[in-house]
Nucleic acid binder design. Structure first.
Length: 211
DNA sequence: CAAACGATTTTCT
DNA sequence: GAAAATCGTTTGG
C-alpha cells in the first residue's frame, strides 16, 4: 500500500453516509483504521491512511464535548447525523478533525489522531513547513489537520463532498492488528479517562509513540 | 463582561 | 522533561 496512485480506480470506494450511521462508535473507530482520507482544499489534493483514532461516545462519556447532552455552538456538529466533519480549535491554534457517527441527536464522533501520508506529500510538507517526510508530518490530531488542509471551514461538511472524502481502499485491520489503550489528554474525564477507546495500527511507524 | 481552560505542538533546557 | 505559545469557546458573575 505504498502509493495511492497505483490503486485501480474501481477499487476506490467512497464510504457512503450509511456507513457512518452505525450506532457503535467504538466499532467505527476501529473500522476506520486503514481507510483513506482524500482532501481537495486550496487546489491541493492530499491523501493519507488513517492509522490512529479515538472514540467519543456521546452524552454518557465524560470525555466527550457533548457529555450530559451539552449543546453549544461548538458541539452542534456532533448532533448531526453521522457522516459529516466535526472540526474545532484546541489550545487556540490547532484544528482537530473528527468523523461524526451515529444517528441524528446522538452526539458520537471519532477523533482522527494520526495518518500515514500517501499522495500530495509536497503539499503536506509545505503546509507544515517541513522538509523531510517523517512521523512528525502527520502524527497527532493537530498536525494531520494542518498537513491535509483541514480547518474549521469544513466543520459540518459531509464526508462525501468535493473537499473531503473517506475511502475504503486497502484493508480492514483485524483485532490482532490493533493496539488498544486509554485516550490521550482527557484526564478531566475521571473514570471515563480509563476507557479503552484509543486505537492504533500495531507496528505502524506513523502513529504517535506508545505510552 | 471577565476569566479559565483545553481531545496540542514546538521549542528550549 | 518542562514550559511556552495562543485564542475560541464556555462558564460564571
Amino acid at each position: 500500500m505504498e502509493n495511492l496512485k497505483k490503486i485501480p480506480k474501481k477499487e476506490m470506494k467512497l464510504l457512503e453516509p450509511s456507513y457512518y450511521q452505525n450506532e457503535d462508535v467504538v466499532y467505527l473507530a476501529k473500522d476506520l483504521l486503514g481507510k483513506v482520507i482524500i482532501t481537495n482544499i486550496d487546489n491541493m489534493v492530499t491523501s493519507a491512511e488513517i492509522v490512529e483514532t479515538e472514540a467519543y461516545n456521546g452524552i454518557n462519556d465524560k470525555a466527550c464535548h457533548a457529555y450530559n447532552n451539552r449543546r453549544t455552538k461548538r458541539t452542534s456538529a456532533m448532533y448531526k447525523r453521522g457522516g459529516v466533519a466535526y472540526v474545532y480549535i484546541c489550545y487556540g491554534m490547532h484544528h482537530l478533525f473528527n468523523v461524526v457517527t451515529g444517528r441524528e441527536n446522538e452526539p458520537q464522533a471519532v477523533l482522527i489522531r494520526a495518518v500515514k501520508p500517501l499522495d500530495g506529500i509536497n503539499a503536506m510538507l509545505a503546509r507544515r513547513k517541513k522538509n523531510t517526510l517523517q512521523r512528525s508530518l502527520t502524527a497527532g490530531p493537530g498536525a494531520l489537520c494542518q498537513a491535509l488542509g483541514i480547518t474549521k471551514e469544513i466543520n459540518e461538511t459531509p464526508l462525501t463532498s468535493e473537499l473531503i472524502g473517506i475511502y475504503g481502499v486497502f484493508n480492514n485491520y483485524r483485532e490482532d492488528d490493533i493496539q488498544i489503550s486509554k485516550r490521550v489528554g482527557v484526564a478531566y474525564a475521571e473514570d471515563d479517562a480509563l476507557l479503552p477507546y484509543r486505537f492504533r495500527v500495531k507496528g505502524s511507524k506513523w502513529t504517535s509513540l506508545a505510552k
